[in-house]
Amino acid sequence: MNLIRPLLLINPNTSLPSTVLMLHSARAALPPCYAVLTATATRGAAMITNEAELAIAEEEVLVMGKARATFVSAIVISAFGNPGLQALRQRVAVPVVGIGEAAMLEAGAGGRRFGIVTTTPALQGAIERVAQQLGLGPQLTCIRFTPGDPLVLAGDPRQQEERLAEAVQACIELGGAQAVIVGGGPLARAADSLSQRFELPVISPVAAAMRLVLARLGPTSEAAQNQQA
Rank of each mutant, 00 (worst) to 15 (best):
Q225L: 15
A170F: 06
Q228K: 11
S193L: 14
N11E: 08
L7W: 07
S78Y: 02
A103F: 04
V202G: 10
V36K: 06
T49D: 05
R158D: 13
I203N: 04
V206A: 06
S78T: 03
T146R: 03
N11A: 05
S78F: 02
R163W: 13
L30D: 00
L194H: 06
A224P: 05
Q90K: 14
R189T: 14
M22Q: 15
G218S: 03
T118P: 01
I127C: 12
E53N: 02
F198C: 11
M47P: 05
L7V: 07
A167E: 05
I77Q: 08
M1S: 14
V96P: 06
L9M: 15
V76S: 05
S73V: 00
I48V: 15
I56E: 13
T19G: 15
A87Y: 08
A207Q: 14
P157L: 07
A41H: 10
V168D: 06
T38G: 14
L200C: 09
N2F: 13
M104L: 09
L9N: 08
L194A: 07
A209D: 02
Q227D: 12
S204C: 15
V94D: 01
M64F: 05
A52R: 14
D156Y: 07
L37P: 00
T38Y: 12
I75H: 07
A109I: 00
V152I: 13
R144K: 15
G84I: 06
G125F: 03
P150M: 03
M47T: 08
Q159P: 01
S78D: 13
L214Q: 11
T118M: 11
L7P: 10
V202S: 09
F145K: 03
V63I: 14
V130W: 04
N13H: 04
R89D: 00
N2M: 14
V213K: 06
